[in-house]
């Protein structure tokens, strides 16, 4: 919400996990069902359904894993871990086609999206309404702090670069992150990966696109390490060393 809204484009691309009930339209034995379900692991073609928010062109989506949790006759409980933009309704339909009996999706629950799963910080609408009321009417902050989680919790799975206090405000103004501003780097960052630029206090400053690999960020002496894409932190939260320096020359105090 508010400034946190800027993380959305990144969150929308996160992998998801679903549990869904697939209803078969005919009788199928366990072995055939298992075999066909397993065929859907890996990259699959999907055409977005008629009622969808995107262009209905055939596209490839990756199913990282899929398993049958339970089965009761024609009702099959599936768990699917997939790339963003995979349609579960379509998946169930397509499994039914391959089985030769037809199938449709009966029920769906998303159990994880990126780093948010249904076992941590989950809030119901009732929680949110109550928390807001307690705060408005009774100045109670705790319930509000439980229902509303810091934006940082939503990007836990994104690789991080931790920067100096003195580098923060320039990033808040959209400047790219240069190597001298870096204090810590998570391993495994590749060029063009989305990275989170963090303060030493664990605050998300901005999301950006890596221009260097982790190793380069650690060994290089200068150069742009991350292009800033979405600024989350409000400018002015940290002092602007860079502005002062520009005005009175390098070496002038704060």
């Amino acid at each position: 919400m508010s400034r946190a809204i800027k993380v959305l484009p990144v969150l929308l691309k996160e992998d998801k996990e679903y549990v869904c009930v697939m209803r078969l339209h005919g009788d199928v034995d366990d072995a055939s069902l298992r075999k066909v379900v397993n065929m859907f692991k890996g990259p699959i073609y999907q055409r977005p359904p008629l009622r969808s928010a995107v262009k209905r062109a055939l596209r490839v989506r990756r199913i990282y894993d899929i398993r049958i949790l339970e089965r009761d006759g024609r009702n099959v409980l599936l768990q699917v871990w997939c790339e963003a933009g995979t349609y579960m309704r379509k998946l169930c339909h397509d499994i039914g086609e391959i089985l030769g009996v037809g199938a449709h999706m009966q029920e769906l629950r998303r159990i994880r999206s990126g780093s948010l799963d249904e076992d941590h910080y989950l809030a119901t609408l009732h929680d949110v309404v109550d928390a807001f009321f307690f705060w408005k009417e009774h100045k109670l902050e705790e319930p509000l702090r439980q229902s509303f989680i810091p934006v940082e919790y939503t990007i836990q799975h994104i690789p991080k670069v931790v920067i100096r206090d003195s580098a923060v405000d320039a990033i808040c103004h959209g400047a790219p992150l240069t190597v001298p501003g870096i204090l810590q780097v998570e391993n495994g960052i590749k060029v063009r990966d989305t990275v989170a630029i963090m303060t030493l206090k664990g605050e998300l400053v901005a999301l950006g696109e890596a221009v260097m690999r982790s190793e380069q960020m650690l060994t290089a002496k200068k150069g742009i390490a991350v292009k800033t894409k979405a600024v989350i932190m409000e400018p002015g939260t940290y002092p602007s060393m860079w502005k002062k320096k520009k005005k009175s020359g390098a070496g002038a105090g704060i």
């Binding site: 919400m1 508010s2 400034r3 946190a4 993380v7 948010l116 941590h120 910080y121 989950l122 809030a123 119901t124 609408l125 949110v128 705060w135 902050e141 509000l144 702090r145 229902s147 509303f148 989680i149 810091p150 934006v151 940082e152 919790y153 939503t154 100096r164 206090d165 923060v168 870096i182 204090l183 810590q184 780097v185 303060t199 030493l200 206090k201 664990g202 605050e203 998300l204 960020m217 650690l218 989350i232 932190m233 409000e234 939260t237 940290y238 002092p239």
Partner: peptide, 30 residues
């Protein structure tokens, strides 16, 4: 890569932001 302290006068740990600031940087896992 390098060690440095952070100045407690600026910014907050996410959980320690004053509520008005906290609410600017929140999400709901609904």
């Amino acid at each position: 890569k390098d060690e440095e302290d952070t100045n407690p006068d600026y910014g907050w740990k996410p959980e320690e932001r004053p509520i008005e600031v906290y609410l600017k940087y929140v999400a709901i896992n609904l």
